[in-house]
Amino acid sequence: MHYMLIYLETAEEMGKRGNPAEAGTYWGGWNAYMGAMAQSGVMVSGNGLKTPEVATTLRVVDGKRHIHDGPFADTKEMLGGYVIIDVANLDDALEWAARAPCASAGSVEVRPVLPAPAEG
């Protein structure tokens, strides 16, 4: 079964990316985690994302495009990346979620992926 693990990080945690004193540990943790996931063969796809400051949000209201600088919503936890994994069940997905560095500095949302609609 495919699950998306959505990695949500606190601002403090994400701030480590740009801090020379902490970036090594930060990326070391993520690289080890992603590496272990790839090595075990559960990873289907996935990406890390740049910080929300470089996000752009668009919505169309009454036919008019509204574009604004920044993420969709200001939240305590920010989307830092995601992977799609192929595992037997939710408990296996939770096990991988718990190993994410942001599990203890943010949270991980685990969602089943909708199966593709049958071709008619």
Binding site: T25, G28, G29, N31, A32, Y33, M34, G35, A36, M37, Q39, E95, A98, R99, P101, A103, S104, A105
Partner: peptide, 14 residues
């Protein structure tokens, strides 16, 4: 590195 990627304990990872 693999062991670090498999732990769910941040301090063990470090």
């Amino acid at each position: 590195r693999t062991a670090a990627g498999l732990t769910s304990d941040a301090s063990v990872r470090q």
